[in-house]
Design a protein around this nucleic acid. Structure first.
Lengths: 187, 187
DNA sequence: CGAGAACGACAACCATGTTGTCTATCTGGA
DNA sequence: TCCAGATAGACAACATGGTTGTCGTTCTCG
């Protein structure tokens, strides 16, 4: 017995025996639900860490979801409806997000000269700065993961996921919890 | 050029060229944010499919989150506070979930003979049945994934994720979106 | 025995979604 | 040319799932 961690994770005992830095073996048969939990856990870990770091850098009012929305706008979602389509959420949800981003100075809205119905969206310099920082943070996190399981293994993981998840229009309408402070909870 | 799918996924172009059933190559350098999106996408895919199937089987009022809560109870979370700890959620949130589960007949509450403050939780036969079905559905989904990338590759993915995510108490406080109907949105 | 911790409950609130409805504007076919 | 129908964006109402703060009751331990 070298280093035996036993943790009761909800519905099934999730045993992982750490044998060395990178060698390990699963003792437990993984179930389908475990797989889902693993994926969620992975995302949460990245998202939480990113949002924490972003707030540490002074952008404490930005969540990954906002970041994603800005990216969508920067990538060409020039109006609310288009943004809604890209984020695969309702127009109203998109409008709310836009209102929020606008209020905080991350995007601006202007009248569309060609279509009086539309309001053109544009990311501000401040918004771009946040996006840049967010990107850097995610890169850093990815690098950490690389160090932990190796570049090759991570690439493999990504490749597999890419096949499984496919080029589907990833919904990133991850609500509040994406950036919820996990600090100290009343236990 | 065999079969070239190009999809604009939000903030970075995510190119995947499908060459054959299981061979593929990533053309795009994956960024950290991509990784997070991939993880989220994977989870969502499983969770959405599971919840859809569960509702197809007649349990249309159960979401994965409820399922997870029941598992936690069945696994030993005998009262609200304990459940809150296991789900890493506030007591109040746990209480709400319990109220919901109780109302739908999936769990029952009784007075604790040893501690008048506590209410003992127990999953009902109906609750257990839902859990059983949920499990089966997740197994089925996992099997599908296995067929798509191969058992070895999937095991590898799981192993890597297990190392990265670690035996942390996976929070499964995934709100509404976990079970949101993605069917037809007002575009 | 009494201070403090733990349990469960209530109320108020927040964040992010949703639907439904409405008006203004654009667009394409008769 | 003109009107039916689609689209953009807005408002209101509501659902979900979470949070904090407070409070009374009950345990527990020094």
């Amino acid at each position: 017995m070298i280093d035996n961690q036993v943790v009761d994770v909800q519905h099934s005992v999730n045993l992982v025996v750490i044998l060395g830095p990178l060698s390990y073996c699963r003792l437990m048969v993984r179930t389908g639900a475990d797989l889902a939990l693993l994926l969620l856990g992975g995302f949460r870990q990245l998202a939480d860490a990113a949002s924490a770091e972003l707030s540490r850098r002074g952008y404490d009012d930005v969540r990954p979801a906002h970041d994603f929305a800005m990216r969508a706008i920067a990538a060409g979602a020039g109006n609310a409806s288009e943004l809604a389509r890209r984020l695969a959420v309702s127009k109203q949800a998109a409008a709310k997000t836009i209102a929020l981003l606008q209020e905080r100075g991350y995007v601006v809205r202007a009248d569309d000269p060609h279509d009086a119905r539309r309001k053109l969206l544009q990311v501000t310099a401040l918004g771009l700065e946040v996006m840049r920082q967010g990107e850097a943070i995610f890169e850093e996190l990815r690098r950490e993961w690389e160090q932990r399981i190796g570049a090759e293994e991570l690439a493999r993981l990504e490749a597999s996921l890419a096949v499984l998840v496919g080029p589907s229009p990833v919904r990133l309408d991850a609500p509040g919890w994406v950036a919820q402070d996990l600090g100290d909870m009343p236990r």
